[in-house]
Simulated assay, not measured.
Amino acid sequence: MGKVTHQLRNENQKNITRIFDRLSQRNSRWTVWSDFVVMSAISISNTVDKVNEQSREQLYMDTIKKYTKAELLEFAQMIAELVMGMERNPNCDFLGELFMMLELSNAQNGQFFTPYSVCSAMAKLTIMDELHSKIETEGWVSVNDCACGAGALLIAFANECKEQNINYQRSVLFVAQDLDYTAAMMCYLQLSLMGCPGYVVVANTITNPVTTYDRKGLLPRDGQNIWYTPFYFTEIWQGRTICASIDRMFHQMPKPAPAEVKEEQQEITVTQSTKTDYPINETKAGQLTLF
């Protein structure tokens, strides 16, 4: 394990590796790593997502039964090292790199994460002139990685936004999906700690791709294992979800039959001419807004 420690990026990754080695004496290395990321993800999710809080809290309580109080304190220290490491250097795939260095990748399933340097180059090639223009026109954009792994590509995209003076916390919705539960939780953790608004879906992209009720991805369809990041619940993004919900509601309203049109015409005319304190306006993006 000394060789692995030597290859790690910073002191925080080395500290996590040392703790990880101690925790792996009683349980398998994969079990310890998976439990670490899942418990950490639940700790974040349950502060904001009250719909899924009860079921995830039960999963958390079932997971901690494997460990002693002293070992749970070690897990807490691992989370602290993760937070400090990403704060000191956000320009990396902190968990993805650590995962590969600890040799936890599954060769049989082809679970090899794309190096962050490659993801960074891809992000630079993907944007930025068109992105600036689209944000100016529509107010915000969405970006999707349908095989997110630990989230390196989305992290690189967020960092490139910062380089181009784009406030991704207000202007970009991040959508991620992965079949592997542990990888998806790694992505969720890193996007959450970077303040990326959006969500991670745990599902097979080929057989069950993420779909939404709105055209821009704000309202994912029910029935999927969805993990919303804390910034998805900020005021600006919740306002946008309300607008998307209103837009969806109006599009779903049944059109009146021809015979009913004349009968309702007078009532509609009166309603339209009546002033209200809360008019519904339309944004440049074509969304309805109450603001």
Results as ranks from 00 to 15, higher is better:
Arg22Val: 04
Glu97Lys: 02
Asp145Val: 05
Trp30Phe: 08
Cys119Asn: 05
Ser28Lys: 11
Ile280Val: 15
Trp227Asn: 01
Ile268Tyr: 13
Leu189Ala: 04
Trp30Tyr: 08
Asn144Cys: 13
Arg26Tyr: 15
Glu264Gln: 15
Ala203Met: 06
Leu104Val: 06
Met84Tyr: 10
Gln111Asn: 07
Asn91Ala: 09
Leu179Pro: 00
Lys3Ala: 11
Cys119His: 05
Leu179Ser: 02
Glu267Asn: 14
Gln272Val: 14
Asp49Cys: 05
Phe233Tyr: 12
Asp178Gly: 00
Gln265Gly: 05
Cys196Arg: 04
Trp30Met: 12
Leu82Glu: 14
Ala80Pro: 04
Lys66Arg: 10
Val172His: 01
Val175Lys: 01
Phe291Tyr: 13
Gln108Leu: 14
Ser273Cys: 06
Arg248Leu: 10
Gln272Glu: 13
Phe250Gly: 14
Phe113Met: 06
Gly151Tyr: 07
Phe75Trp: 10
Ile42Pro: 02
Leu23Trp: 01
Tyr228Gln: 01
Lys69Gly: 12
Val270Gln: 13
Ala176Met: 00
Thr212His: 10
Phe250Val: 15
Leu8Ile: 07
Gly149Thr: 02
Asp214Gln: 07
Gln266Ile: 08
Gln108Ala: 15
Lys65Asp: 04
Asp93Cys: 07
Thr241Val: 09
Thr68Asp: 12
Thr114Asn: 03
Glu138Val: 13
Met86Leu: 14
Asn89His: 07
Glu267Cys: 14
Phe20Asp: 04
Phe174Glu: 02
Ala156Tyr: 06
Ala76Tyr: 01
Gln266Thr: 12
His132Pro: 11
Asp21Leu: 11
Leu23Met: 02
Thr182His: 11
Asp93Ala: 06
Glu163Val: 08
Ile44Lys: 11
Ala107Arg: 09
Gly217Val: 00
Val261Phe: 06
Met101Tyr: 13
Ala152Met: 03
Asp35Leu: 04
Met86Ile: 14
Cys196Gly: 02
Ala147Val: 08
Phe157Gln: 03
Glu11Ile: 10
Thr241Cys: 08
Gly217Arg: 00
Ser55Asn: 10
Met101Pro: 14
Tyr199Glu: 00
Lys262Arg: 08
Leu154Ile: 05
Val38Arg: 03
Ile64Val: 15
His251Asp: 08
Glu282Arg: 15
Gly96Arg: 01
Cys196Val: 02
Ile44Trp: 11
Gly110His: 00
Ser142Val: 10
Glu160Val: 12
Asn204Pro: 07
Thr114Met: 11
Tyr60Asn: 06
Asn144Glu: 13
Asn208Leu: 03
Ala76Leu: 14
Leu288Ser: 03
Pro258Thr: 03
Ile166Cys: 12
Val201Pro: 00
Ala70Pro: 02
Ala121Ile: 10
Asn165Trp: 10
Ile16Met: 12
Trp227Gly: 01
Cys146His: 09
Met186Cys: 10
Val210Glu: 00
Thr114Phe: 09
Asn225Thr: 09
Ile268Thr: 13
Ala184Ile: 00
Leu154Asn: 02
Thr276Asp: 14
Ile166Asn: 12
